[in-house]
Computed example of a mutant assay.
Amino acid sequence: MIDPIILQPGGDWRAQAEVFEEIFFVFLALGTLVGTIVVAYTLWNVYKYRDDGGEPKESFDAPTVGELPTGQGGPKAKKLFLSFGLSAIVVISLVVYAYGILLYVEEGPDTGDEGDIEILVEGYQFGWEYEYPNGHTTTGEMVVPADQRIDIEVTSRDVWHNFGSSELRIKSDAIPGETNSNWFSVSSEEVEAQGGEATYRVECFELCGQGHSAMKGQITVLPQDEWREWYEETGGDAAEGNSSSASVSAAVGGVPA
């Protein structure tokens, strides 16, 4: 399960939101399974060793408070080491799985020849400004293409803010004089599911003043051809198709200094 996410062969990579949803599902499913087994086993022992008012059997080895297994092969020791071994396997497996996926989230996917789009996000009291590679800026709305890795550099011009979108599972501190990097992506299937144009709410997650609650924005995701048309109208030399990585890099290069 880890390899398809970490290695990301070719263009087969996923958005952060999908990765976090998978982590949530795996932990929820495994936690529910383990919890059900533990509770069922506990209830079974409660019933099996209940006090029915009679004399206990001679073979019954009642536990005492603070007692530890002798480690000499008795039934108590076997149960203890079996449960410890199974628990260790489950915990270690989850740690390795989660660590591998979080490395992918931290580093982001390798898009190969598709090129990345880098956008400077600047917070201010009380709104967001976005600067594209060609120098074009928008306020309140970030417009990006589907099926593309979007790299964002987040900063602030006044006080501390926090740029985030709960639906896209992204959050980055916006600190004056510093930049924090993050990335996100939206699939064309998701865009089509929302009627050909996907929108996601942007909020500030850092208390930054009286207008904090109104510091909202929007990320609009368009199909790639529509986004190219929009980008050309802003003065950008958008590449025609993804056949030439050099053209894409020229169109969507790094954030201006």
Rank of each mutant, 00 (worst) to 15 (best):
V105G: 03
E229C: 06
E226L: 02
K48F: 13
L168S: 05
K79T: 07
E203I: 11
L28V: 05
K171W: 13
W160S: 11
G123Q: 04
P69T: 03
V91Q: 03
W44M: 05
P176S: 00
W128L: 06
R169P: 01
A251V: 09
L222D: 04
G11M: 09
L86W: 13
D225M: 01
N134L: 04
V121G: 12
V252D: 13
G31Q: 08
K48N: 12
A257H: 09
G235T: 07
E206M: 14
G71L: 13
H161D: 11
D3E: 14
S87T: 15
M142N: 02
S165I: 00
W227E: 00
L168K: 04
S165K: 00
V221Y: 11
K57I: 01
F163W: 15
F60I: 06
N134D: 09
G115A: 05
G209P: 06
R201S: 14
S181K: 14
S245I: 07
S165H: 01
G196Y: 05
T139L: 09
D237A: 12
V252H: 15
S185I: 00
V39I: 13
A198C: 08
I101W: 10
S245L: 09
D3I: 15
V255I: 08
E18R: 00
A257L: 11
P69M: 06
D113G: 12
A62C: 09
I117M: 15
Y124G: 14
Q148H: 15
Q210M: 08
A29D: 01
Y132Q: 02
E141C: 08
V38Q: 11
G140D: 06
N242T: 03
A257Q: 14
N162L: 12
I119A: 00
F81I: 14
D237P: 02
L103D: 10
V65F: 13
I5K: 07
G135T: 09
R157T: 11
E118T: 05
Y97G: 04
E67A: 13
E192R: 01
D12C: 07
A62Q: 14
L7M: 11
E240T: 11
E67L: 14
E229V: 10
A238G: 09
S156A: 14
A250G: 07
Y200C: 03
V154M: 13
R149V: 15
W128S: 09
I37P: 04
Q8I: 08
E189K: 15
V154W: 15
D12R: 12
Y41G: 03
E141A: 08
G127Y: 10
V91P: 06
A238F: 07
E141M: 11
F24M: 09
V19H: 05
T179F: 12
D158C: 01
R201I: 13
P4A: 05
W44T: 00
V34Q: 11
V91F: 04
A77K: 01
F81W: 15
F163T: 10
V221Q: 10
D237K: 08
P176N: 03
G108L: 02
E189D: 15
Q224Y: 05
K216L: 15
N162C: 14
T42R: 11
P145M: 02
S172P: 03
E153N: 08
A29H: 02
L94K: 00
V255Y: 03
P4S: 06
F205D: 04
E232H: 09
S185R: 08
Q125K: 10
L43T: 12
Q148T: 15
P75C: 08
D3S: 13
V90P: 03
F184D: 01
V121S: 04
A77M: 06
V26S: 07
G236M: 08
E129W: 06
V65W: 12
L102Q: 13
